[in-house]
C-alpha cells in the first residue's frame, strides 16, 4: 500500500482504514485455489477472477456510496437504485432467453417489487429516505427480487414449453390463456418463493442472517439486531412476492396471443 501511495502521491487508501484484514481474509481464497490445483478441480481461474471482481466492485461501490452519502439530493439515491434495477433486469433477461421480452418483464417486475417495498417502508416510517438507509436496503431488495424474477421467468417458460400439449388441450376446451397456464403459473411462483420462505422459517435456527451478524459485529445489542433482521426478512418476503407475482403475470401474458394461442419457442 505504501508503495502505491508513493507512486500516486498522497494517501490513496485513506478512506479504507486498515486493509490488512481484507488481505488476510484473501488467504482463504488462496488456500482454496491451492486445494483446487492439488485436486485438479480447475477452479483457480474462476476463484481468481471472482476475488478480483468482488474486490474492485466493492471498493468502487464504497467510494460511490461515500460520495452519494455526502449529497443532500435524493435524486442520487434514486439514480443508484435505478442502475441496480437495470443491471438486475439485464442479468435476468439473459437467463430468460426463451421468454419473449424477458428483459422488459424483468425490469418491470423487479422495479415494481423494489419501488412498492421501499415505498411502503418509507411511508410507514420504518426507514427514513436517506441514502444510508435506502441504498443498502434497496440493494438487498433488488438482489433478492432478481433471483425471484429469474426463477419465475425461467421455470414458467420451461414448463409452458414442456407441457405445451396440456396447455393447448385446455385452450382447445375453451379455457383462456390464464386458466390454461394456471398450473404452470402456480408452480413457477411456488418454486421461486421456496428459498425466501424456507429462509424465513429457519432464520436464527440454522444461521444468523447477514444484517443481524453485521449489526452485532458493529457493536449493536442482539435485541436491536434481531429487530432490524425481522424487518429485513419481512421486507424481503414482501418484495419477492410482489416481484414474483408481477414476473409470473407478465411472463404468462408474453406467451399468449390476444386470440389465446400459445407462443412457444421451437413451435412445430
Amino acid at each position: 500500500m505504501e508503495i502505491l501511495n508513493d507512486l500516486f502521491g498522497g494517501d490513496l487508501f485513506a478512506g479504507l482504514g486498515d486493509l490488512s484484514r481484507v488481505l488476510l481474509a484473501m488467504l482463504f481464497v488462496a488456500v482454496a485455489a491451492l486445494i483446487s490445483r492439488w485436486q485438479r478441480a480447475d477452479l483457480e481461474k474462476d476463484l481468481f477472477w471472482a476475488t478480483v471482481r468482488s474486490f474492485v466492485q466493492l471498493i468502487a461501490i464504497g467510494y460511490l456510496l461515500e460520495l452519494i452519502f455526502q449529497q443532500d439530493n435524493p435524486v442520487w439515491t434514486l439514480l443508484l437504485l435505478g442502475v441496480m434495477v437495470l443491471i438486475a433486469a439485464r442479468t435476468t433477461g439473459r437467463r430468460g432467453e426463451n421468454t419473449p421480452r424477458a428483459t422488459l418483464i424483468a425490469l418491470v417486475s423487479i422495479g415494481f417489487g423494489t419501488a412498492l417495498t421501499i415505498g411502503v417502508l418509507v411511508l410507514l416510517d420504518v426507514f427514513a429516505f436517506t441514502p444510508q438507509a435506502i441504498i443498502p436496503i434497496g440493494g438487498m431488495i433488488v438482489g433478492n427480487a432478481m433471483t425471484t424474477a429469474t426463477l419465475v421467468i425461467v421455470r414458467l417458460s420451461d414448463d409452458l414449453a414442456a407441457q405445451r400439449n396440456e396447455v393447448e388441450t385446455k385452450l382447445a376446451l375453451g379455457a383462456t390463456g390464464r386458466q390454461a397456464s394456471l398450473t404452470q403459473f402456480r408452480r413457477a411462483l411456488q418454486s421461486a418463493m421456496v428459498p425466501i420462505i424456507d429462509t424465513t422459517k429457519t432464520v436464527g435456527l440454522i444461521k444468523l442472517p447477514g444484517a443481524m451478524t453485521g449489526m452485532i459485529l458493529a457493536g449493536a445489542s442482539p435485541i436491536e439486531a434481531v429487530q432490524l433482521q425481522l424487518i429485513v426478512m419481512y421486507m424481503l418476503v414482501g418484495a419477492n412476492t410482489f416481484t414474483g407475482l408481477s414476473a409470473a403475470f407478465l411472463t404468462y401474458r408474453a406467451f399468449f396471443s390476444p386470440a389465446q394461442q400459445l407462443r412457444v419457442v421451437g413451435q412445430p
Partner: peptide
C-alpha cells in the same frame, strides 16, 4: 375465441390427462 373452441372441439394425438 373461447366460444369458437367450445363449438369446434378438438381431440389431440396424445391425450393430456389433467390431475
Amino acid at each position: 375465441v373461447t366460444t369458437l373452441r367450445c363449438r369446434v372441439g378438438m381431440v389431440f394425438q396424445k391425450t393430456a390427462v389433467f390431475g
